[in-house]
């Protein structure tokens, strides 16, 4: 009886595997030469990464490519392993979404040897890759920081919420560092690294503690967040504490952030990144490569725009 159960379970496992594989193969619809584009990311749970992946899938469907999304939940060792698997399975193209390619140097070289083009979507560009589409992080940081410093009147106490391990956020924070040097009247109260995943909750807690420690008016003038999620968390904490003297800015232009800006929360501005635009650029370049044409550039930018209360409803 027990033996039978064991064999039954083993069969169940194998049939699940087979069913999964069949389901996948069934999607090909008999098109023997259908191209497969593998989408690889460690941060699928992030709103913006998810938007890019969804947009890429839509673009791929329009081009009749098959897609395969792999997420490793923040684990770069796994990411390297999964990329090796995709190279073994000889996919036609690999897109790295929100990934620092420096951590996959070996795998990118291997893909190049196997003639599998590697594209970046809001990642970065290193040798061996075909191209990367992103926003100009330094330009976006400059746009929002200039707006914030103007709002602050060029002086005050600033809280910085960031996450320097992310290559894009790092560039934004470095731009802030430069502009802080040019504005000596703006003092940094503290710079905190926001935990990922769970940035909204984490930033909210960090902000609650900072508010407790800085209760007098003017002790904190503003919060600069490296992206929208910590900005949202910080704004929620400020609102809950009933503090009217602190403003928050973020970057990315997520729908939740824009909604908050519209409703007049402490979050006053963000820069809207064109994530779908990046995915479109990547899809266009993949198409060019599939047709044997060269890409239009190794680092292509999708233009970003400032969102404030005045234009948030548009």
């Amino acid at each position: 009886m027990k033996k039978a159960l064991m064999v039954l379970m083993a069969f169940a496992i194998v049939s699940v595997l087979a069913a999964c594989a069949d389901g996948q193969n069934g999607g090909q619809g008999g098109g023997a030469k259908q191209k497969t584009v593998a989408i690889l990311t460690p941060y699928l749970a992030s709103v913006t990464t998810n938007e890019m992946v969804e947009s890429l899938k839509k673009q791929a469907a329009a081009h009749h490519w098959k897609t395969n999304v792999v997420d490793t939940k923040g684990d770069f060792g796994q990411l390297a392993s999964r990329m090796e698997d995709l190279i073994s399975s000889k996919v036609d193209a690999i897109v790295l979404v929100s990934t620092d390619p420096n951590q996959l140097k070996g795998q990118i070289q291997k893909a190049a040897q196997e003639n599998i083009p590697v594209f970046g979507c809001d990642s970065g560009y290193i040798e061996g890759m075909t191209m990367n589409a992103t926003s100009d992080n330094a330009a976006m940081s400059k746009m929002i920081t200039e707006y914030l410093f103007q709002t602050m009147g060029g002086k005050g106490n600033l809280v910085v919420l960031t996450y320097r391990p992310h290559p894009g956020v790092l560039k934004r924070t470095q731009q802030l560092d430069t502009m802080l040097k040019q504005n000596p009247d703006i003092q940094v109260v503290t710079e905190l690294q926001v935990q990922v995943p769970g940035p909204i909750e984490n930033a909210r807690k960090q902000m609650e503690s900072l508010l407790l420690a800085n209760q007098s008016e003017g002790s904190i003038t503003a919060v600069w967040a490296g992206w929208d999620e910590p900005a949202i968390g910080a704004a929620q904490a400020i609102e809950a504490a009933g503090r009217k003297d602190i403003v928050v800015v973020g970057i990315d232009g997520t729908s939740q952030a824009i909604d908050m800006i519209q409703k007049g929360s402490p979050l006053i501005a963000t820069v809207k990144q064109n994530f779908s635009g990046m995915a479109e650029i990547v899809a266009q370049q993949i198409d060019r490569v599939f047709q044997g044409q060269p890409v239009e550039g190794t680092e292509l930018y999708a233009p970003a725009s400032l969102v404030t209360k005045e234009n948030a409803g548009q």
Binding site: L17, Q78, D85
Partner: peptide, 16 residues
Amino acid sequence: GILANGLTILEVPTFA
């Protein structure tokens, strides 16, 4: 390790 490798090669989605 074999499950992760094989399932990726078979293009089984990450959640599955």
